[in-house]
Structures are given as C-alpha cells and as structure tokens.
C-alpha cells in the first residue's frame, strides 16, 4: 500500500470532477477517502457539518469488513454497498483498489442516478490519481 501525496493540482481536479458530476446531480455530500480512512476530498453542501474523520474511518472499516464478508461467501467483493435511511441514504463505491467514494444523498436523488454517476466518476478519478 503506497502513501498518497496530494498536490493542489490533483485535489483540484478531483474536486472538479466530483462537483461536476455528483454534486451537480443534487447529492448532499461526496467524500473521497482511502482504504485507511484518510480523507482526500470532501465536497457538498453538508460537508462542513459532517464529522468527516469518524465517517471516513468507519466507512473504510465498513468496506473492509464487507469485503471480508464477501470472501466468506466466495465473492471477490460486493458491487453495491448502500444504506437506506428515512431521509438520508449513503452509497459506498470503490475507486480502484485504494480509494472509496462515499455519497450521501436525500430522497430527492435516486439511487440509480448515484450509481450511474459513481461508475462514470470512478474512471475519471482513477485517471487523476494514477496519472
């Protein structure tokens, strides 16, 4: 597992990509983290009200745990990780092997839209981070 060195340029590109896609689509917050729970980017209207550090640590652990669960039942990994609440929903998407994109959205945005956007975004972000 390599260390991440973020330059202003990389971060700006990633933020632009996320804002142009997910935030434009109306999601509340999009959080890009790595597998160890570090936050790489935090965008969206609720970004500042969020305990992002805890969320990132738990999300990384959650994905690690579910991926272990997947292996227990003979799966490589689960393709859809989603929790549905009364007013808020959260979607986790893997970006390559190292990164995780967390999307928090309300009832006004459909899960399908988020899934489409995350898939598209995944390629863009991979290019940004892997060059």
């Amino acid at each position: 597992m390599q260390d991440f060195i973020l330059t202003a340029e990389i971060l700006e590109k990633a933020r632009n990509a996320i804002e142009g896609s997910l935030i434009q689509a109306g999601v509340r917050t999009a959080l890009l983290i790595d597998g160890a729970g570090n936050i790489l980017s935090n965008c969206g209207r609720d970004a500042d009200d969020l305990d992002a550090i805890s969320l990132a640590a738990l999300a990384a652990a959650n994905l690690g745990a579910t991926s272990q669960i997947a292996k227990l039942i003979g799966e490589e990994d689960f393709s859809l990780l989603f929790h549905k609440g009364k007013n808020g929903n959260i979607h986790f998407g893997r970006i390559g092997d190292e990164l995780i994109l967390i999307t928090i959205f309300g009832e006004d945005v459909s899960l399908g839209l988020v899934r489409c956007r995350v898939t598209d975004l995944s390629e863009t972000l991979l290019q940004i981070f892997e060059g």
Binding site: D3, F4, L6, T7, A8, L11, D34, A36
Partner: peptide
Amino acid sequence: MALIDLSK
C-alpha cells in the same frame, strides 16, 4: 499509509 496534502 500516510497522507500528505501539499495543497493544505
């Protein structure tokens, strides 16, 4: 894995 944010 350390994270080094040069922009911030």
